[in-house]
């Protein structure tokens, strides 16, 4: 009987592996943030892509179930005395199936956009604004890694 149960479990697992919609799915995302950057003092008041990325990480914590993600990298900026023009979150996601995985991707995408929006709101800039001719807002971009 025990052997039969194990055999059935094996067959189920093989079937699940051949059917992506029901398979556990994992993958990585690269979440980029782009802002204008500038001198830390001379351009003070501009948005920071790194600050936006950090805000997004906190939103990811709130939006995604524990164990469904792992942040493997958070980086950005080029020097201590510059407002960061770039930010990057690298994240690995694990879901029970493809649909759940896409839900995680959507949640990360929303968190990234909301993190950028929070940084823009804190510094009082909106899409279309310019600073010295360059886009004044921080923007987020999500793609598979």
């Amino acid at each position: 009987m025990k052997r039969l149960i194990l055999s059935l479990a094996f067959l189920v697992s093989v079937a699940a592996a051949a059917t992506p919609a029901f398979a556990q799915q994992s993958g990585g995302l690269r979440v980029d943030f782009q802002g204008p950057g500038g001198h830390s003092s001379g351009a003070y008041g501009r948005v920071s892509a790194l600050h936006a990325a950090a805000r997004a990480v906190i939103l990811i914590q709130k939006a995604l179930p524990a164990g469904s993600y792992q942040i493997t990298n958070l980086t950005g900026g080029n020097s201590v005395n510059s407002i960061a023009s770039d930010g990057l979150i690298e994240i690995k996601l694990t879901a029970a199936n493809a649909a759940a995985y896409q839900a995680l991707v959507a949640a990360v995408t929303k968190a990234a956009a909301d993190g950028a929006a929070a940084e823009n709101a804190f510094r009082g800039v909106k899409p279309g604004d310019l600073t010295s001719g360059a886009p004044a807002t921080v923007r987020s971009f999500v793609k598979p890694s």
Binding site: S40, L50, H51, N73, G77, K92
Partner: peptide, 21 residues
């Protein structure tokens, strides 16, 4: 006039075969 920023951040890459920075 007083200013601040987190100018730079980085993480040590996870060792081979691991995902923890």
């Amino acid at each position: 006039r007083t200013t601040y920023t987190v100018g730079r951040a980085s993480c040590e890459p996870p060792p081979a075969g691991r995902t923890v920075a």
